[in-house]
């Protein structure tokens, strides 16, 4: 989804051919290592965008190698792009394995929830340390994309750590509550109730 609009946006900047689009995308996101897009994906996306009428083939660049088709954005494409810019993006919703682990730890009752929490805390601190050290190695002037991405990772880790503190702080309260149990409904036809 986002790759499609990124390509559209890069074409709004100026007409380009497929190979150039791929390099431009990598330059913007901070390198192939952060977000690799395969050439096939770029070409497939371009033909889908062309089918939708959002981009059009503008011409062919003749060089020493094979000829390269140059694409440009259409007015409909610009409209679609603008709509994308001015609409919200839902946060990626991940099923949180640690949350499940903690709940199951409380349900089984034969592990120490505080130790489960502390293990996770240390794991997150190691991640945070690694990205912090890595961030320091970046050049703030030339590697802004990487810095912005890593800042996002750092802030997410901070939030996870704060959440762990909160859970630990409320652990006794949680343990005093009855553990969630599913409503078991009898299978089959409901029994007749004798009046």
């Amino acid at each position: 989804m986002s790759v499609r609009y990124a390509i559209l946006g890069l074409l709004a900047q100026k007409p380009r051919h497929g190979y150039e689009l791929r390099s431009a995308f990598h330059a913007v996101v901070g390198g192939e290592e952060t977000w690799n897009v395969k050439p096939a994906q770029v070409y497939a996306t371009l033909s889908r965008l062309a089918e939708a009428g959002w981009v059009a083939e503008e011409g062919v660049e003749q060089g020493s190698g094979p000829e390269k088709r140059i694409y440009d954005i259409t007015p409909q494409g610009r409209q679609a792009l603008e709509q994308w810019f001015y609409s919200g993006v839902a946060p990626e919703h991940q099923r949180d394995e640690f949350f499940v682990k903690l709940m199951i730890a409380l349900v089984t009752g034969d592990v120490q929830p505080r130790r489960v929490i502390q293990t996770q805390r240390v794991f997150l601190y190691r991640e945070l340390h690694a990205v912090t050290v890595l961030r320091q190695s970046y050049n703030l002037r030339t590697q802004l994309a990487q810095v912005l991405m890593i800042d996002k990772a750092i802030m997410h880790l901070e939030a996870d750590l704060r959440w762990l503190d909160m859970v630990e702080g409320r652990l006794e309260e949680i343990q005093r509550q009855p553990l969630p149990e599913p409503d078991i409904r009898p299978r089959g036809r409901p029994r007749k109730v004798e009046v």
Binding site: G30, G31, E33, T34, V122, F123, Y125, R126, E127, L128, H129, A130, V131, V133, L134, Q146, I150, A153
Partner: peptide, 16 residues
Amino acid sequence: SRLTPATAETTAMWPG
């Protein structure tokens, strides 16, 4: 807890 070295996942997840 020691924070170094980083886990293998972190090293793989972020560009060197």
